[in-house]
Simulated assay, not measured.
Amino acid sequence: MSEGPVDLFGNPIDFAKPAEPGRPAHVPSAENHNKILLLAATGKSLKECAVAVGLSVPTLRKHYFSAVQQFDRARLMLTGERLSQLAAEAAKGNVAAIKELGKEIERGELRALGERVKDRGKSELPAKAKGLKEQRKEAAQGVKGLFEPRKPPSSLAH
């Protein structure tokens, strides 16, 4: 156990003044890299991940560039790893793992079905709205009476 006061999370509190002004330079670690990937996999934003490891967003991007590049894939990677572990446990005969794997498969099938039917009945795209100029041009073509455009003289050849 560490000597001296600790904060709410068990980190030691250092009340000594720093030797140099400003924050000390960040040293990247594998632990922080994994923490960032797990947070991204659970749907956290880049800013939330940066706050969780005590960095600013630009510093996070600088030191953990590869983790930031994997943000979109992180959730899929975590889900895949989780499903492979469930399948391994189910193969060993673990009844709880078999039930959970069955639930995950059903959820996947429902998601796939939802994607297939969500656009059903919307085969035609809605007509593009006409702009103000186009609307006025069409309205001018239908003018009759006093303001009807004159017909060109018949002596003009095109």
Score class of each variant (00 low, 15 high):
Glu104Cys: 10
Arg75Gly: 05
Glu100Asn: 11
Met77Tyr: 06
Asn94Leu: 02
Glu81Trp: 07
Arg82Pro: 00
Gly108Cys: 06
Glu81Asp: 08
Ala90Ile: 05
Ile98Ala: 09
Leu83Phe: 06
Ser84Gln: 11
Glu89Val: 01
Gln85His: 15
Arg73Tyr: 12
Arg75Ser: 11
Glu81Thr: 08
Gly93Trp: 04
Ala74Ser: 07
Ala88Asp: 14
Leu76Ile: 07
Glu104Asp: 08
Ala88Tyr: 11
Glu81Gln: 10
Ser84His: 07
Lys103Ala: 08
Met77Thr: 10
Met77Cys: 04
Gly108Lys: 02
Glu104Ser: 12
Ala90Gly: 07
Glu81Asn: 11
Glu89Trp: 05
Ala87Ile: 05
Leu78Trp: 02
Val95Lys: 15
Val95Gln: 15
Ser84Ile: 08
Lys103His: 09
Ile105Trp: 03
Lys103Phe: 05
Gly93Cys: 04
Ile105Cys: 06
Ala96Pro: 02
Glu106Leu: 08
Leu101Gly: 00
Arg75Phe: 03
Ala90Gln: 03
Arg82Asn: 09
Lys99Asp: 15
Ala91Met: 13
Arg73Leu: 14
Leu86Thr: 00
Leu86Cys: 04
Ala90Val: 06
Val95Ser: 14
Ser84Phe: 07
Ala91Gln: 15
Lys103Thr: 07
Arg107Glu: 03
Arg75Lys: 11
Ala97His: 01
Lys92Asn: 10
Glu89Ile: 01
Ala96Ser: 13
Glu100Tyr: 02
Arg107Val: 05
Ser84Asp: 09
Leu76Lys: 11
Glu106Gly: 02
Arg82Gly: 07
Gly80Asn: 12
Leu101Arg: 03
Arg107Ala: 09
Ala91Asp: 14
Met77Leu: 09
Leu83Ile: 11
Glu89Thr: 03
Leu86Val: 04
Leu78Glu: 03
Leu76Ala: 15
Glu81Met: 09
Ala74Gln: 02
Ala74Cys: 04
Glu89Lys: 15
Ala97Trp: 00
Gly80Ile: 06
Gln85Thr: 12
Arg107Ser: 07
Gln85Val: 13
Leu101Tyr: 04
Ala88Cys: 08
Glu100Ile: 01
Ala87Arg: 11
Gly93Asn: 06
Ala87Phe: 05
